[in-house]
Design a protein around this nucleic acid. Structure first.
Lengths: 210, 210
DNA sequence: CGTTTATGGATACTGATACTATCCATCACA
DNA sequence: TGTGATGGATAGTATCAGTATCCATAAACG
């Protein structure tokens, strides 16, 4: 398959494919002559994955590259592959907060992790984001939401368990890693759109007249 | 309070505040003379909100504007205010899928909505995103995840119930609207970081040796 | 009272991101 | 043999989210 056909079967414009090749998101095709390369099924699959990450999950190109590299690095421990995907997904979003708001948030999050027995890397970017978000919610006067952090954590444990289960069905390690990474990323898009739909539906008949 | 002090108390640089003023995110201060305006507590609060939306929830500036306008439009029905926030949160993320993948996804999503009794606007952007995501997961060979859509929906209903409860405690309608909108948006950041932490912790001891 | 500093408002510039467009020397195929 | 596609390189574009610069005026300080 040459680039034109790859473009036609995936719906991705040729210049964009060339761009992904340049950026190293897509491995080069096999060269039969200096200006004739052929692409295969793996390229089709990868292009689909790239588009899903960029379009649906809004992962920046650099993040996609990171994720794909981790998928290809199948010598490294699975947990490390997942860690790389997580990092690529959590663009350091920090927010200055007053010292006491941050201290309170840090303490609350530490309690939560302790109570749940979650052991995470203290440098995990998601941890910083969580602390900042809790602090921001307090600063914005939304303490009642923060008070239910535990219920959020319950619900989150629920689907994380399902994901782990769904994913362990994969026979090979490579497939497992791919499932985990795709599930982590597209799962978020899934949850987020489900949540918006649930809110829309519930809020519609809850506050019809306000 | 003049712009310098506003900058110092919020940690937002003066040129950035001027930019937000230009973009209409922040209402103008009260002018005492052609080049002397004074800002108050509302400006401090609003700046905190803007920064939280932009930094933590990664909402684009245009979306923040939309959200704030809906918060200020306290004459329109609450449900419509929420709808605007939702639209600002769901940047049309579409992904070309093969016709049968999309058809299957559309059917599955329709079933889900029906079974749960969720009634949503067929033009809701979140609906399109959900369909595309389900189609993409199938195309990428992740059917086992898609098979658990219902469990995701369960967990999502759980959050939503908590949020509604937490938020109805607000005495005034304005506060209620603000809580709903902030909860919708920052809640997503909260859930996403909790989920990453849960995954990290669970995956760590689940796949120690793979 | 004069001088330094800050301010409001307008306009211009910047850096990052994600593509698009153009070139050109091959290459395949008719 | 010529026509269109290809690989590879380089340059251009649009959008976004600020930054920077200017200027005339106002406030604060000595």
């Amino acid at each position: 398959m040459r680039i034109g056909e790859l473009s036609r079967t995936t719906g991705v414009p040729v210049p964009t494919i060339k761009y992904y090749l340049r950026e190293g998101l897509l491995p080069a095709g096999e060269l039969s002559s200096p200006n004739q390369a052929s692409y295969g099924e793996t390229h089709v699959r990868r292009l689909h994955l790239i588009r899903a990450l960029i379009e649906l999950a809004q992962v920046p190109v650099a993040g996609v590259k990171e994720i794909l590299e981790s998928l290809d690095a199948d010598t490294e421990p699975l947990h490390e592959q997942i860690g790389r995907a997580h990092r690529a997904l959590t663009p350091t979003r920090r927010l200055a907060a007053t010292d006491d708001a941050r201290a309170a948030a840090t303490a609350q999050v530490a309690d939560l992790l302790h109570d749940r027995g979650w052991s995470v890397d203290p440098d995990a970017p998601a941890l910083a984001t969580l602390v900042d978000t809790v602090a921001a919610l307090r600063t914005l006067g939304q303490d009642s939401l923060v008070a239910h952090l535990d219920t959020y954590a319950d619900a989150v444990e629920r689907f994380t368990a399902v994901e782990i289960e769904a994913v362990t069905a994969n026979p090979t390690r490579d497939q497992l890693a791919e499932s985990v990474v795709i599930g982590t990323i597209l799962g978020e898009t899934l949850i987020s759109s489900l949540r918006l739909l649930a809110q829309e539906s519930i809020s519609a008949d809850r506050w019809k007249n306000r």
